[in-house]
Design a binder for these strands. Sequence first.
DNA 1: AACGCCACTTAGCAGTTCAGAA
DNA 2: TTCTGAACTGCTAAGTGGCGTT
Length: 597
Amino acid sequence: NFKQSLGVSQMCFIIHSKCILLRYTQPGQQVHKICFGRWEEGRSQDGKKWKTLEHKGPLFPPEYEPLPQDVSFYYNGKPLRLSIVAEEVATFYAKMLDHEYTSKEIFQKNFFTDWREEMTAEERDLICEFSKCDFGEMHRYFVEQSEKKKDMSKEEKEVLKEETKKLTEEYGYCLLDGHKEKIGNFRVEPPGLFRGRGEHPKMGKLKKRILPEDIIINCSNDSKTPEPPKGHKWKEVRHDDTVTWLASWVENVQGSIKYIMLNPSSKLKGEKDWQKYEIARKLKLKVETIRKEYERDWKSKEMKKRQKGVAVYFIDKLALRAGNEKEEGETADTVGCCSLRVEHITLHKELDGQECVVEFDFLGKDSIRYYNKVPVDKRVFKNLKLFMENKNPEDDLFDRINTTYLNKTLNNSMTGLTAKVFRTYNASTTLQEQLSKLTSRMWHAEKLLSYNRANRAVAILCNHQRTAPKTFEKSMQNLQQKIELKQKQLDEAKAELKKAKSDYRESKTEKLKRLVEQKEKMVKRLQEQLKKLQLQMTDREENKVIALGTSKLNYLDPRISVAWCKKFDVPIEKIYNKTQRDKFAWAIDMTNEDFEF
DNA sequence: AACGCCACTTAGCAGTTCAGAA
DNA sequence: TTCTGAACTGCTAAGTGGCGTT
């Protein structure tokens, strides 16, 4: 009846764990949603993450398939049949042959050492020199295989797709507190060669195959325990409701623990995400006080306090990461704020007409370069000079402090405050500020472009980079050509319009009048198309090495975007794709247009 | 305070899919 | 219908920060 009275053909209930939405579209109008119930903030205080948890355990990668008889590894120019285990490891290398990783000495060395460990005694005796190894034939075989896969018929591809879908349905979900939730990564990581980022000392090492005997399962004790693969046992089955993971194992290269966890769309993750932004909003209310506090620290008698004051200033102003200390030689040499070394900054009393400029140049997370020249407060500049006195380039800039101390003092200023909150706070504030400058008079494409601009401002602040797409230059050229063509068309159309007008002036017939109107329309359309292309060009150029996704997914309070969409009548689908809409379901459900971060 | 361990978020890349242009 | 480039998805490495122990 409700449907009929509204003249709506379709209506659906969207059932979240803590709210139910009734969703429908009235003809010619926007989508309506009626919300019953709401998301819960905070959650229980006792550290319990769930009451019940049931799942099927992780999905293992397929077993190794030996090479066909006519494909072989060559040593010293002669074909050599390897033992299954050694052959498998060799294929890892062979598959990567055209990647530049394999040309690096450390990569080769690490691989060769670990490979020899997997060989039989005889193989180890024989295969002593890496330079005599030839993986060419194996490599060609794998290239061929992937070609074949590409050339498969539509039907065959369909069958494969169906199979993965079935596996996802079986293993991709769990039951948490009685609700079906998507799992983030339900597959055990397959064996292979470790590829670190940047100059990683462990690149090329063998990442071993994980067996059920390595895996700890976590589920509730009254649930059906996942079945290990035939002939195998789990390492342990535990029932720990203070953690959110479903399974874990220790990885052999770095000795770190890997987890199977829920998808960001889950209630558990969503509420945590929400909480994160609430803390950042709390910082917004206190940030002025906190800024005064660290400015006072710049003058402290205690060197430790001064260093802290300057470090927090960097974290706040430049959105630097905290910079935990890392084990030397175990990972790539990267730093964050607290681990900055003297060699990473250069002080300029004056630079390009600005006073007190600090030049930063260091590798941050994922070995992404941070390069920036920033004019700073005079007192900060003086302090930095002081911190650098009598130090070697490789000494710590902030030698009296570390992230634990810094976070402890931050927590004293505001409960829940840590270094990373500043990044969230500054990112979200920047987005909101930038968006508030926009007007509703813009046309659609312009609105979206402006949103991207705002997003980009944040990405630049957080130094989120990407390697320029391989096809960038070419696609840019193509676009340029299109623009030139459009320009030419426009010029022609304009000339035609002019002619039509003068014709009309000479003999004012109805037919010629219509022609003028027609040509005017044509010119207008072409102008719009040209403008659109030019916008696209700027957008793409500015986006060349900037990654927008990271900030969108991790730093920008989605409620800002949702509110903006509502206010300016932009469909949310233009801003967030399906995955993102799932992740931010909590925000989409509860935000109206006057939300303020 | 130093250390080691653990749990969780944040990050860029590569392969795949999709949509619009030719 | 085919081709091309962008968007999306999955993957897993690399951070942050808390806690208990010494």
